[in-house]
Design a protein around this nucleic acid. Structure first.
Ligand code: FES
Ligand code: FES
Lengths: 146, 146
DNA sequence: TGGGTTTCGGACTGTGATGTCTTAAATATC
DNA sequence: GATATTTAAGACATCACAGTCCGAAACCCA
């Protein structure tokens, strides 16, 4: 687990980026996803379920079923995924854990951390997941296209 | 809790910065610390105990006892505190949670995240806690000097 | 229609972080 | 030496997160 996101969130990102490499509308099963990515089967099921609940993904039961993006990959950013799972509190919280984070009552690194928060946010929205997936050099994503 | 550090770590930072405002060698009790900072009494005790175990703090029992910095405030950085509690894995881990983080097998944001990790590390070591504490504008730290 | 496949939903367990409580040990003061 | 005060240490409780399991529902295909 990185310091930024929960496990769930990391798995969600990994899964969504995998789906982004698939032809539009094609369904991908949890089985295929767990075969490529190192994620517990049932746990991933729950996570994708949750994402489907928010509309970020669509799902279909049955033999040809699975999951697919709920809208075009060009219209989804990593922030959408992170926000759906972990929320966006990190854009507002003090890095030292003080109850208030504002310029009126700042901690020692308020300004510095403020800039970094912005950079992290920017990292999450600068590119859509279509570009992101294309930039992914991880071997796990080789020939995801079927 | 911020996205970077555990609660324990946040409390440790808050406590150590408070101690950094005290005259060198003066002992500060958990009671005084919890009166200023919003941290559970016994939990803070455990944390300071742990920091004392690493030598970052010294402690003394008895009526005039308490905690104090183990070395000069000028020779301690926030990274020392973070490293003692949360460790330094964040300098090595993939932000998307992939098992490997290297340029040979990079994820979509490997380079970007690499720069940010460096910036975070830099934020933690750029200033010593003497300067940090002085820069702290939080009301909790007003007139910490006794 | 029936059987196999897949997601759905909920209950359940495991684990680590957080927080509480109690007793003991050390220290200062009287 | 007696007492009060403070940290030390460990057991315990609580909670959130991670992960598992199972039956039901939806779906496809023969
Ligand atoms: S007050 Fe600490 S980051 Fe804003
Ligand atoms: S591989 Fe993802 S940050 Fe390095």
């Amino acid at each position: 687990m990185s310091i930024l996101f929960s496990r769930q969130c990391e798995y969600a990102i990994q899964g969504v980026l995998y789906l982004a490499l698939k032809p539009e509308g094609e369904m991908t099963s949890i089985k295929e996803l767990t075969k490529r990515l190192d994620i517990p089967y049932h746990f991933l099921g729950k996570i994708l379920q949750r994402l489907a609940g928010t509309g970020l993904l669509t799902s279909l039961k049955g033999p040809t079923g699975g999951f697919a993006l709920g809208r075009k990959a060009k219209d989804i950013t990593l922030f959408d995924v992170v926000n759906a799972i972990d929320g966006s509190d990190f854009t507002r919280n003090c890095v030292m854990g003080f109850p208030e984070c504002s310029g009126k009552n700042p901690c020692s690194v308020h300004d510095t951390w403020g800039r970094m928060r912005d950079e992290i946010y920017d990292m999450l929205i600068r590119k859509n997941i279509a570009e992101m997936a294309k930039d992914m050099k991880k071997t796990e994503y080789r020939s995801a296209r079927s």
